[in-house]
Write a protein that binds this DNA or RNA. Structure first.
Lengths: 254, 254
DNA sequence: TCAAAAGTGTTTTTTTTACACCCATGG
DNA sequence: CCATGGGTGTAAAAAAAACACTTTTGA
């Protein structure tokens, strides 16, 4: 991250409570209407979009920090998280942007402010059930909303770069880490799962073989209840079985 | 990492030059006599083994910091490096160990010393050509040497955990990232490469099919010069072609 | 000329892919 | 009763694994 904390109520002692020069940036992915979406914020003070982010409290695990940051934005507590990279260039600092924000708040811009220093940022991507998320802005952000990953606006700081890296890793992990199931509701049809895969891979897949392949992973449980809807055979609902999923990941790595 | 800097000549201003509460730990792998090895240090002051590590200077990229740390230990400058994880538990601090070290140096132990704080550590693994490395101790370490990964001594701090994570990631990346070639000299025989794979995977592979599989990756170039040795046909030497390797990684990810 | 190690060719097995077929449902 | 989406079976193609054969070398 890099938020602007200039007008936080406890602004003056906040910097003592966190690890200096270390931030967390989160790339939150969701899946809706056959589109892969990412959650972005718009700052109140500077007219730019950014990824949700924050800092690590002194007595807080870094992963707990990521969960806290995401809890605020999404309303969900138990989110699937994965550390995908660390951004640590020596020149990774944004004094101009932060000073602009300070000005916008009516403060004297201060290039020596702790937030203007060089920051090492830890990148997490999160996978969420789109329908469960309540995008929530806060005291620093005017808007919090979903964007189709093919239509994201310009991002400030180096967030465009961070986003690209997250997407890259996510695609790499699609097969390896059973990424897909974290983006769907607890139960889903095979068609929905296939749509997700096709969106990820950017190509159509064979319906019949896709079904076989997914079932052969032995991580899905068919829910006997059926789905009711259109003028056609009702599809089965499937549930991703966490236990089987872990067994799958186990045996993959040996 | 967590080194003990108590007796460094520029001890007093060193902490101003680095990012606070952030460290780097490196797991250096080498391959020798059909064994996977890891480079460990023994501290001068406390009688314990540890991974090489260090801190990030204010005007230094984190990857450059890792290279600097490794350069000291190995004598090699251009090392293959990969960030494999970040260790960021809130309780990741080792005041007792550091204070013991301070005592051992004849200093007053100080629980408020910067090195006793909670540290977030960035884990890199490095892959090196064993024969090129000159294990080098320094002012803080009494010994720097290789250990078979199945026979490593107890490690201090949380370094045993860090090492395990590195090994795990390394195994995962064996096929994906062409890990193996970084552990061999510039030219090698197919047999040597196979030995390396067998050591990694912990099982024997079919010689003939292994050869075909490696050649089918299209990243190896056969060097016409042959090898001279035993009472048998001389094997070809192969060279890993960096360019072809990159092309391979490219197409893997789409 | 034989044993040992290296390289290539061929067959067998397994896995993937393509495609044909049946089922259920609402209009 | 038929169009549509969903599920299963089967044949063809491709990839992996197993195994047989040839080459080179020093003793």
């Amino acid at each position: 991250m890099q938020e602007t904390l200039k007008d936080s109520k406890d602004f003056h002692n906040y910097s003592d409570k966190i690890i200096q020069q270390l931030s967390i940036d989160c790339v939150v992915f969701g899946f809706h209407q056959n589109q892969l979406k990412v959650l972005l914020l718009k700052s109140k003070h500077i007219n730019e979009w950014m990824l949700p982010g924050g800092f690590v409290l002194q007595n807080e695990d870094i992963e707990a920090a990521a969960h806290r940051i995401l809890g605020i934005r999404t309303g969900i507590q138990d989110i699937y998280l994965e550390l995908f990279s660390v951004f640590g260039s020596a020149n990774r600092q944004f004094p101009e942007i932060h000073q602009a924000a300070m000005r916008a708040c009516g403060y004297q811009p201060d290039p020596n402010h702790w937030i203007c220093k060089r920051f090492v940022s830890i990148g997490y991507y999160a996978l969420v059930d789109f329908s469960k998320v309540i995008p929530t802005a806060d005291e620093f952000s005017a808007i919090c909303d979903w964007f189709d990953i093919n239509k994201i606006p310009d991002l400030c700081f180096d967030h465009a770069h961070i986003f690209q890296k997250a997407l890259e890793k996510l695609r790499q992990n699609l097969d390896v880490k059973l990424v897909g199931f974290n983006l769907l509701p607890p139960t889903f049809t095979m068609g929905e799962l296939q749509n997700l895969y096709e969106t990820f891979l950017g190509k159509k897949l064979s319906r019949t073989n896709f079904q076989r392949k997914m079932l052969s992973l032995e991580v899905l449980e068919r829910v006997e209840k059926k789905f009711s809807g259109g003028a056609h055979k009702a599809p089965y609902l499937y549930r991703f079985d966490e236990q089987k999923g872990e067994a799958f990941l186990e045996k993959k790595h040996f």
